[in-house]
Amino acid sequence: MFKIISSKMLCENISQIVFEAPRIAKSCEPGQFVIVRSDETAERIPLTISDYDREKKTITITTQIVGQSSMKIASFKEGDAFADVTGPLGQPSEFVNEDIEEVRKRNYLFVGGGLGTAPVYPQIKWCREHGVNFDVVIGTKSKDTLIMEKEFEAVAGEHYFLTTDDGSYKHKGVVTTVMDELIAEGRHYDVCVAIGPMIMMKFAAQTALAAGIHTIVSMNPIMVDGTGMCGACRLMVGGEVKFACVDGPEFDAAKVDFDGAMKRMALYKTEEGRAYLKAKEGDTHKGPYHREA
């Protein structure tokens, strides 16, 4: 069993849970994810690891409440335990296994949108700990939906750029406006890592690629087992079928078929889509079964 150390709401519909997972905490790296099955009858939900503590043997997950399964996960309180957590799954971020001297020569631009803020956190933390230079742009709808501000300030300091769609806090605009400004200021980036809703990643990638920056995105399709067995998470990358769970979840944005992936996800992610699914599949569609971070 995976005992929960703390569980809190970061904003109205995003919860963050820290729990014991000794084997995962020991071996996980930025970019990887876990699959959580909260109780006996629950689905297996893939969630990106948003922090880990090797000494305390804990990992942190951050999840947005969009349906029955994520609501179930968020309802778990301190002292409860998840039935099953499997991981770490997927490939670590590229820089983790590269020659650190090479990585230190580069300047990274991290871009996080909405819930995608959470999985960016272990990446910038890793960069800070390893002396890698970076800027990080975080976008969210408004002040009310902002998460992990203090953590980002502590790790990124003056390299942390925050923007809200409605201008209710800090900069007004979407992440690409900030990216454009930073690039226009003459800042140079070698690698961009963008994590967030598919549409945000698509446009962030367009902006970065146009500026000649090598760009990585973290894909979050539907998954079941997370070990390469079921093929539910397949997507087209560079004209080939790839499995996000074993080949990804991070891919070279220049090769990703965003429109195809978005089409595949759209039905599960939007309300109309879910209504459509209900009409199509009846009551058997009991919740959205996509990866929620």
Partner: peptide
């Protein structure tokens, strides 16, 4: 897998299946 391991055919499990 959805049906066997995750028991989508049973009403008391959360697993969806088309």
């Amino acid at each position: 897998t959805r049906n066997n391991l995750m028991k989508a055919f049973r009403e008391d499990y959360d697993t969806p299946i088309a």
